[in-house]
Design a protein around this nucleic acid. Structure first.
Lengths: 301, 301
DNA sequence: ACGCGGTCTTTAATAATAATAAACAAATTG
DNA sequence: CAATTTGTTTATTATTATTAAAGACCGCGT
């Protein structure tokens, strides 16, 4: 009737497993020892011991906890289907929104959705609240949520914002000293791009991951929590869209690899103007791809 | 035991007021009509009518609802102290954090805090979740929240991010056509700055508001929801800090007005280099003031 | 003295529930 | 018979009550 006893069940079954490796008549460790072994509080351990006693698995007198019989399969507790946490929810929900299984402007139903994602309604509510900072959903006056969704406007504004952040990153990157780790990373990335280009005929959809890795690397050098937070969302959105937009995928990716290589070369030359130009060029292509994909999928509202 | 019947009570008392203006024997309007007049659902209206009948205020037969007696003060329902909504909470909470009534790294207690701010625990939880996007608080593994608070690092990163956003705004602003409203706004703002400078001896703490208005105006021309969202937080932080840092307030504000005027002049001249320079100059001062104020207040962790 | 376990307090997550909204159906009236 | 009103039912949200877990405190025994 309240929170799940998932923790208890898990610890309980782990303890059963421990007992299986013991001999009958052996003494169980102290409550504190068990608690730290199982990674739970003593309260949970005590509940487990109580159940063990009820099941006649152990006998307790004073501080002696003796194993009375071998545990069987029946002693194990069933673990109910575990609910997702808020982290797992994030990617699932965004995928759902970005896939546009729902039209924009739709009123969301917390109870229903929480079932769909198998999370507690409360978890979903909280998650929506945090998403509202990014304008994907909005709280309605008297309860309920409206999904603004991933509209064309949204895509354009997101792309522009990405532009702003990444050009700033480029500017800072250029000025980094020779011994900064980013230069190694770029070298590795360049090689990975060249490798992918070799096997582009078959492995072309591996580009989505590489693209994400590349942009993450560039933006990671900006030591700013706000930039980092946005980078997460941005990369998620672009990543998912790359995955779905299957039109001309091989062609697009091949072209993008070319742009990336140019971009890397410009960065390594430490030429700000060239690097900015290359970045701008690639980001524009990216934006165009994103917008086109939205338009062809009919999400023009 | 569930949600508050605030809505019911409010509508009920409004209806009493309506009845007071009626004569005994008059007929009450239809449920639908009342519902739309009061702005509530028919369910609420029906609850009200039921209570009216219990109180012998009206008689109901078929569709005739007749007023039987004049309502008295005793018929009014007491409204319990209303809880705050999530919007009111935002400014209160930020003020509390920024004032640094709590040390950074503190573990927050939802139940306790919700009392302090007189909101439902649930509301606070949701709010914290949304704040976590800005890195002010962070969710801990198994429940609970850590307040990262407004540290020196945070201030620096926020200032840098502000810099990035505002310089971008400046760049876009310069390129706006002559008939854009922003040019009028700047002219008005310039005059307001000059006026304040006249009465600076006494009215120097009015600058905080003017500063906020000024920066808001500049950033408003960027049509981007992400920029707007951040602008809200940024302006809140700087605004509050201006209010508390009383050291040299008059001197600081006078100097800042000077910088603003220069900034406005540069913008109006449409000279990008000059405008960027002026903006940069003012933003640096702002950052320095913020950082200094944190240091002198001993929040150097 | 020090670890151990009994007891109690605090806290956050969930289940239950009251309040509301809204849809549908039946009925009455002009 | 069309339009409006009311009765009924269902869906959904916001809040309270309850419970699981964590951990503090303290006396006791070795």
């Amino acid at each position: 009737m309240a929170r799940t006893n998932e923790r208890f069940i898990e610890a309980h079954n782990k303890m059963i497993a421990v007992c299986k490796r013991m001999e009958i008549g052996d003494e169980l460790p102290s409550e504190n020892a068990m608690a730290s072994t199982l990674g739970v509080s003593r309260t949970v351990v005590r509940s487990i011991l109580e159940r063990f006693k009820d099941q006649a698995l152990i006998s307790i007198n004073a501080r002696q906890k003796l194993l009375m019989r071998r545990p069987t399969k029946d002693d194990l507790l069933e673990t109910r289907a575990t609910l997702l946490g808020i982290e797992e929810l994030e990617s699932q929900f965004l995928e759902w929104v970005l896939r546009m299984d729902v039209p924009a402007g739709e009123v969301l139903n917390v109870a229903q959705l929480s079932q769909h994602f198998s999370v507690a309604p409360h978890t979903l509510q909280e998650f929506l609240s945090s998403l509202s900072r990014f304008g994907i959903v909005e709280r309605r006056a008297r309860g309920g949520w409206v999904l603004h969704g991933f509209t064309l406007d949204y895509a354009i504004e997101l792309s522009d914002f990405r532009n702003l952040l990444e050009l700033n990153a480029v500017k800072q990157l250029i000025a980094l000293p020779e011994d900064h780790d980013i230069w190694n990373q770029l070298e590795v990335l360049e090689q990975e791009h060249l490798d992918l280009l070799q096997s582009i005929e078959t492995a072309y959809h591996d580009f989505s991951k590489l693209d994400e890795k590349f942009h993450m690397a560039i933006n990671s050098i900006v030591n700013n929590r706000f930039v980092a937070e946005f980078q997460k969302v941005i990369s998620l959105v672009f990543h998912y869209h790359f995955q779905w937009n299957k039109a001309d995928e091989k062609l697009r990716n091949t072209a993008a690899i070319g742009e990336h290589l140019e971009y890397i070369r410009a960065l390594r030359s430490r030429d700000l103007a060239a690097a900015t130009q290359a970045a701008q060029n690639h980001l524009s292509t990216s934006k165009r791809t994103l917008v086109n994909s939205l338009k062809t999928n009919g999400h023009t509202d």
